[in-house]
Nucleic acid binder design. Structure first.
Lengths: 221, 221
DNA sequence: GACATAATGGACGAACCCGTACGTTCAAGG
DNA sequence: CCTTGAACGTACGGGTTCGTCCATTATGTC
């Protein structure tokens, strides 16, 4: 995680870069993320990952213990990356409706641009969330988004704008469901209904739709 | 597909039931549906399916050609079963809003009770919809739901109730996204936010939420 | 500069898994 | 009955895939 602890040699010398654990780990993780996202847990091949790596299969077992350990590390990093973006949201200056629209926009853009993350979450659900259940760090990370939405709802309710019978987690689910489905089910939905869900016009329309729907729902009394 | 073409022998004799192709095929299909839904395409084991069947592995290859052929047959049957229910909806007597709520209710209940179907669709998306693309029958089946929603929207627009800038397929997606996500992402979402999405109270609340949101969205001008 | 420890590579084994070759039984028609 | 094709079972081969054993090189420390 740190800025590489490799020794003096790494300054300028290009070729003789040997024994760089941080880089090796990061390299494996990046390749593994692609492989797992593309083929799922059981479909991913350890040999295939090793082959596309700067290093060898031996290192996967050295650093991650095995296929499952590697998968878990990939999952943890994917969640951490996504939520780090959400955590940086600046909403205090906006009115409740504006803040809510900002959160929705962010979730939409996040899922849209992080296809690998969406696929990994789908895969983990196929696997019944068994690996994620053993990664307490992931839960921690995700509480932030609930806090953010909770704060917005409170402000909206205090102002007499929003209804008060919806919990933050339910609002989050409604937003996530739409943004996630749009990416996760792109293939089947697109193929069946002959629509390209990633086409700019429809993309824009959908973003407007989910924002209007959620805001409209909260304004209902 | 017919009511079994087996001979006179099959009337009452319990034990000597031999050579019953329809039953053999249906048996394989049922077991395979469970196995694929549980472990995905690459995770499913042909040997495991064969073992839990009344018959042998040889019959899988005899009737379905191979693992891929079997998977495709499972997928087709899953879609057909779900959409057959939707096609039976009787909506002509209801006002547009009532009809829309009825469709949403139906979709919600369908996804909620057909976990295997939801999982298979997720799996097919992980597989980038490649198999579904080669199954024209599935597309045909799904057009029905779009027709239904299209008719409701037209009536609502004619009555001056609904906005007219949303296509049926977009409304369908909004409904599907919520109902599908609730089931497909049950494990990760539940584990992270410590909620049981299948608990009756929350279930009911969510059903109300998606209905209110979609109706509310359409009533916006 | 010697030594302990961390990092790395290549080769390999054992289990697994898909698909098939080959042989047998059943059912309907002559 | 006898033939013929459909329905079925057993056993196995060939390829794949995970994980490890053994050997080697780098790195930091005293």
């Amino acid at each position: 995680m740190s800025i590489s602890t490799s020794p003096r040699k790494a300054v300028a010398n290009e070729r003789s870069r040997t024994n760089d654990p941080d880089r090796t780990k990061a390299d494996i993780l990046a390749v593994a993320t692609e492989e797992f996202a593309a083929h799922g847990l059981s479909g991913a091949r350890v040999d295939a990952i090793a082959e596309r790596t700067r290093t060898s299969k031996r290192m996967i077992y050295y650093y991650f213990g095995g296929k499952d350990g590697l998968y878990l590390a990939v999952l943890e990093k994917a969640y951490a990356d996504i939520r780090a973006i959400e955590a940086a949201l600046e909403l205090d200056l906006l009115d409740p409706i504006g803040a809510l629209r900002r959160v929705i926009d962010q979730t939409f853009e996040n899922d849209d641009s992080h296809t690998d993350f969406v696929r990994l979450v789908s895969i983990e659900n196929i696997n019944q969330g068994k690996h994620l259940a053993e990664a307490p760090s992931i839960r921690q990370i995700n509480l932030r988004i609930i806090e953010i939405i909770g704060a917005i709802l409170e402000r909206g309710q205090a102002a007499g704008l929003f209804r008060s019978d919806l919990e933050p987690v339910d609002v989050h689910m409604m937003i996530s469901a739409f943004c996630f489905f749009r990416v996760a089910n792109r293939h089947t939905f697109g193929s069946i209904h002959r629509v390209d869900l990633s086409e700019p016009d429809r993309r824009q329309k959908h973003k407007q739709m989910i924002a209007d729907a959620v805001v409209g729902l909260l304004l209902q009394k």
